[in-house]
Design a protein around this nucleic acid. Sequence first.
DNA 1: ACGATAATGTATGTTTCCATACAGTATGTT
DNA 2: AACATACTGTATGGAAACATACATTATCGT
Lengths: 167, 167
Amino acid sequence: MAASRERSSHELDAPPWLRVESTLMATASTIRRVYDQRFAALGLNLSQASLLAYVDDFGPATQTRIAERLDIGRAATGSIVDQLEERGLVERQPDADDRRVWLVAPTVAGHDLVVKIIEIDTVFRSELRKGISRAERQQLASLLVRLQMNLALNDLDQNFNKEPVRN
Amino acid sequence: MAASRERSSHELDAPPWLRVESTLMATASTIRRVYDQRFAALGLNLSQASLLAYVDDFGPATQTRIAERLDIGRAATGSIVDQLEERGLVERQPDADDRRVWLVAPTVAGHDLVVKIIEIDTVFRSELRKGISRAERQQLASLLVRLQMNLALNDLDQNFNKEPVRN
DNA sequence: ACGATAATGTATGTTTCCATACAGTATGTT
DNA sequence: AACATACTGTATGGAAACATACATTATCGT
């Protein structure tokens, strides 16, 4: 751990004031990029593929539900649905019980594409896991979840602020 | 593979066809978001704070070098330097040896701010590590590095012209 | 039944970053 | 010296996602 009054010594580490955190962000960023590259073969990006695979697995879902599951906003979700709908991969079905919502469902073409999505995903994940044991993967998952729990604690104040301001 | 999972309402749940990978990306994304929130108290975001802290620690650096170190593009780097320069936190110095480049260096105000940046970073990282032992952190770092190695193999054609930086 | 409050999807503007193309400058070859 | 090539920083356009505001529709309390 550098005391860092010395400047010229090591230029090879990450920015000195970040360590595991920056490695984590960099790794995540690379994973996302590679996913995007792989799915580009299908004319999709990761977000589109995720959404399509989700509605195919889960069945017709409202956009709010999709947004929660994919951890993106409702506006972004609507935009992705627009894109997939233009290509005939999903369709918006009205919900008889609630006229505010659309149920997003895969078309036949969409379902066929999901088969390839899952295939690409499976291949990539197996490449990613090369040389990493099941126990280690579980260890990794456990550590990540614990990090997220610490983050959730730190984030509590923020969530309080999220109350909508009405006039 | 994925049968439909029923954990309806928790944030830690992931799209069913993704597991550790999505947790990793979600965790990284949250870390980035919290960093942005914390640095907002200084009127900075994570990228700006990273750049400023880097040039303060390393000394005057060209934008290309900064871009490589922060793992962003040269254009994005130039934009961040613009922002920091407008606030008088860094300045562009001409390089006597190479009239193409600017050497980006912190001002006095910039250096003062870095003190607070490091403070915020230190606090946040200690919160993040709560309940996670040193051995576990090392395990995490090791796993992340191995993931990156697997990614680098898959990514060889693309992006890995990056040589270790030598002078 | 009625009004207040909440939820849904969409529109809008902003931010951040990438990819590409470009002008100016340096470097290497001959 | 002269030319071709490579590198640096910038301009530009585009993609992705956020936050906010809004109209429409549901739901709840009274």
